[in-house]
Design a protein around this nucleic acid. Sequence first.
RNA 1: GCCCUUGUAGCUCAGCAGGAUAGAGCAACCGCUUCCUAAGCGGUAGGCCAGAGGUUCGAAUCCUCUCAAGGGCGCCA
Length: 592
Amino acid sequence: MNSLLEQIKQAFAEALTKIDPSLKDTDPMIRLTTDRKFGDYQSNVAMGLAKKLKKNPREVAQQVIDALDVADMCEKTDIAGPGFINVFLRPSYLAQTLAGLNTDDHLGVAQTQQPLHHIIDFSSPNLAKEMHVGHLRTTITGEVIARVIEFMGHTIERVNHVGDWGTQFGMLLQYIFENHPEVLENPDAFHVKDLETFYKKAKKNFDENDVFATEARKKVVLLQSEDPTAMTVWKAFVKESLRHCHEIYDLLDVSLTDIGESFYNTKLPGVVSELKENNMACEDKGAVCVFLDGFTNREGDPLPMIIQKTDGGYNYDTTDLAAIKYRIQDCGGKRLIYVTDIRQAQHFTMLFVAARKAGWATQDVILDHVGYGMVLGSDRKPFKTRDGGTVRLRDLIEEGVARAKAMITENREGAQLERVQSFSEEKINNIANAVGLAAIKYSDLSHNLASDYVFSWDKMLAMDGNTGPYMLYAYARIRSIGRKGGVDFDHLPKETPMILEHPAELALAKILVRFSDVVANVIKELKPNLLTDYLYSVSKGFSSFYDKKLGVSVLDAESDDLKMSRLLLCSLTAKTLKAGLYLLGITVVEEM
RNA sequence: GCCCUUGUAGCUCAGCAGGAUAGAGCAACCGCUUCCUAAGCGGUAGGCCAGAGGUUCGAAUCCUCUCAAGGGCGCCA
């Protein structure tokens, strides 16, 4: 099913073709109007076309309107200003569209006819340390992109490309050998309560104790030669560290498959030799490098991707090359998405160019790097704890939930409503959990990915404005209408007629029909904030619809037909919010 | 030095496939609760879209330059 917007687009495209077959592929430039007095949608195509056709724009607009066949959809089409074509939707058509959405599990989001196999790489922390605030955006954003892709009917692998290899593991291994020798006997029992402290202790030893440092370096060599003892300890550590990560992913409701960097170890020599053979790689200053056109360093010399170091070792360029090849050739990835901070933009640009040049990423493979800005503290510097340490993700989540709970408890004390006062401790905890996480996630997702944003508990936990808690509240409020009226939203009679007469009803309806367009845009632009903005307009639209003064009554509607119709609108709004929030990785609550 | 990102209301941020008077939230001010969740709704005020040129019928949006902030630029990831 095509969205209303797409139908209008198509009608315009047909009209243009009728005017002149050569205009077949002209974008009709259909946009939402900026003001209701201009109708609902507008086409800006006439102005641009006027020049080409050597006519005046309003004349062209008239020509388009004459050729346009939209009587079923539109009440009227007007020409305004320099040549805008304003489209006024027909309420009956709107009603019909809404009824269609209501019976569609995907709320109008078309299931793709050409499912692409997507592979998305996100979160990907280094296993040596505890996850911290730096992993927040990639983890949250990656999950959203993955969910949207799935929702459209594509297949997807969510890859956690964890840093489980490298020199710092020598240091950790040495520390384990010295302090936890029992690991060798019983690797499964290895348990670290605090990974961060563990890492710091090992690092301290490494920095201050030469003997330790020497032994640590030896452990790196042992690891690289796959010494069984070293491997046992390494595996125990990796497993334990991943357990820590997945505790966080569980809290965040994020799912990921761990494929660490070490997975590619055996593939690295092959990658290097392949690139040498096809003359992409050459030796330079003792290292094996890939030089790509257009990339230069400080001195203006060509900037290499180093794929084999002077000492024969490999680095992240090599691993990423091996991974991109593997994902395309072995996993069948047709679109690869990497979600990392924006500082790595150049690295990924080069990686993609190299993958194309090597012939791995063929033309039909789409490569995307989604770069995001930093999370800042109120001082506009990278977000830190009060004493300047990194903020652990675990602590961040706990604090969010605790603050949410404090807020709810406070409201409960102030509330006159029995409903809130009667909440059990368990219910409060559930709500706090949902609200706290929604606040953190929504705040992150509602910002433009490319910009840095300032982290603020007060802002993200605010009940008013474009926040997670407000969205959850809006949802809970709608659901309560159903409870109050003894109506099951999910089982409203299918034949319930939709009546759209009141301005508040029409306004809400026009917002609801846009859901699929927004989802399509999110996946095209890879910008979650397009969805948060939309959902906010949905809840604003609902609040106005439901307003005592300017909106309409639902349960106390003037007639049964109106009541049922409005309940249907409520139900559809709730579904839209729930679906949208689900895509954002946010779980709704039925009451709050 | 080269490259990338950012610069929009007092604050936090949208908008940037060019399109009508630049939007929202917070903060400020003014209204609205015998009634379905007021954790709400409506309104007022607040802007030389960093600056200067250019392209265009039309520019916050595209191009060039300048300024400011941040980042990247050979063996870390």
